[in-house]
Design a protein around this nucleic acid. Sequence first.
DNA 1: TGGATCACTTCTGGATCCCATCTGCGGGGA
DNA 2: TCCCCGCAGATGGGATCCAGAAGTGATCCA
Lengths: 231, 231
Amino acid sequence: MGDEAISERVVEELQRRILNGQIPVGSWLRHSTIAEEFGVSRTPVREALRVLHAQGIVTIVRNRGARVNGHSGRDVRELGEVRAALEGLAAELAVERINDAQIRQMEKALEDFAAALEKYAGNPELALSAEANQRWSETNRDFHSAILAGSGNHHLVLSIEDVGRRLPLNSSYPVYAGNSRLLKQNLEEHQRIATAIREHDADGAREAMVAHIRSASESLARYVEETERRR
Amino acid sequence: MGDEAISERVVEELQRRILNGQIPVGSWLRHSTIAEEFGVSRTPVREALRVLHAQGIVTIVRNRGARVNGHSGRDVRELGEVRAALEGLAAELAVERINDAQIRQMEKALEDFAAALEKYAGNPELALSAEANQRWSETNRDFHSAILAGSGNHHLVLSIEDVGRRLPLNSSYPVYAGNSRLLKQNLEEHQRIATAIREHDADGAREAMVAHIRSASESLARYVEETERRR
DNA sequence: TGGATCACTTCTGGATCCCATCTGCGGGGA
DNA sequence: TCCCCGCAGATGGGATCCAGAAGTGATCCA
C-alpha cells in the first residue's frame, strides 16, 4: 500500500485538475507552489511536469516553467477524428469479443441515460445542475468503457486514454447541458451502436461509432470556437 | 541553440537505442551508468526514465529501477490493430487532403522500393545486408510518412508515433530480411493503397491500409512468438 | 552439510543546494 | 518626457546529499 511514487501521484492529481478545468488553460504551474501544496520537494514535481509535457498536456518553456495547453477548434476536430477511428475500432472488435457482463453494462448505461433524459426533459433548471452533468458524464463513460472493455484490446484502451488526456473532455458537458436536442441525438446514436453490436454487425457498429464521435466532437469544436471568439 | 533540456536529449537517445535494439529488452537502465555516459548528473536521467515509463517503454519498479519492456505476440497484435485503425484513418483523410508534393514523395518511395526489390531479388547475400535493411526501412518510412503528412492531422501523427514508440518497429526488419515473398507482398499492398488514393477512393484507401498494416503486424507477431519460443 | 540470519553493498527516491537565466522596476541620460 | 540600461528578486535546471529498500554473501547454528 502507498507503494506509488510521489511523482506519480502528482501526475494523476494534476491530470485530474486540468481535465476538469480546476486548473484553467494557459495558467503557469510553478514548482514551488505545487511542491508546497503537496507537502513534498520540487524534485518529484519536476518529474511530474516532464511527464505531463511528454503527454502533450503542458508546454515547458526553458527557464520559464510549464503552462497548461489550450485547444483550438482545429485541435478538437483533429483529436475527434483520431478518437473516432480508435473508438470505431473498439466497436468493431467488440462485436466479436464482448462478453455478457459487458453487454449488460452497456444496456444499463443506455437505460440510465434514457431515464435521466426523461427526468430532466421538461425541467431546464435541473438539466443545468451539476447533478445532471454528473449523470450525463457517468452514463456516457459507462457506455463507452463497456464497449472498450469488450474490444479485448488493452493497448487500444491505453491509446484512447492518451487522446482523452490531451482533450479536456469535461469541457464537452457545457455543450450538452440543457440542450435536449443534442442529448436525445446522443442517446439515439448510442442505441444505433448497441443495436449493431447486438446484431453482430461489425461494419455497422464501427460506422455508427465513428459517426457518433465525429458529430460529438464537431459540436464541441463549434462550442470551443464560439467561446474563444467571445474573448 | 542547444536550448533543449538535457532530460529531453536523454529521452530521445534512449528511445532511439531501445527502438533499434541497441539496448535489449529486459535490461535494467541504471541512473549512474546512464548519467556517467552522458556526462550529466542523475537528476535529468531520472526525469527521462519517468517519461519513458509514461510512454510505456520501460517499467519502473520501486526501489529497483527501470527495465525495458518486452512484447508478447499478443501485444504485437493489439498494437497492430491500433496502428491499422490510425494509419487507415490517415489514408482515408489523405484521399481528400494530400497535396502534389506529398503525392510525389509517395510515388518516389514506391519506385525506390521496387528498384531495391529488383536489385536484391536474386541476391540472397545482399538482401540480408545492413544496407538492404536500411533501404527497406527508409522507403517504407517515406511511403507511410507521405500519407501521414497528407492526412493533414497533426494529432494523428502524434498518436501513431506514440504507438510506434511502444513497439520496436525495427524488430520487424529481420522478418522481411531475405524474404522476397513478404517484400513483394509489401510492395503490392503499397501499390494498392496508392492507387486508391490516386482514384480518390477513401473507403478503398482505408481498407487497403488496414489490411496492409494488419498483415504486416501478423507476420511480426508470428516472428515474435517464434523467437520467444526458442529461448 | 544445509539452511536461516544478519551485516554489507548497491541503488533508487526524495530533499537540498547552487548557479544560470528571465522579468520587473527604478534611475539616469538623451 | 521617454527610452534604455542595469540591478535585484524570482524561478527553473542541474548537481549533490542523505535516507531507506532490496539484493548478496558470509557466518553461525542445527
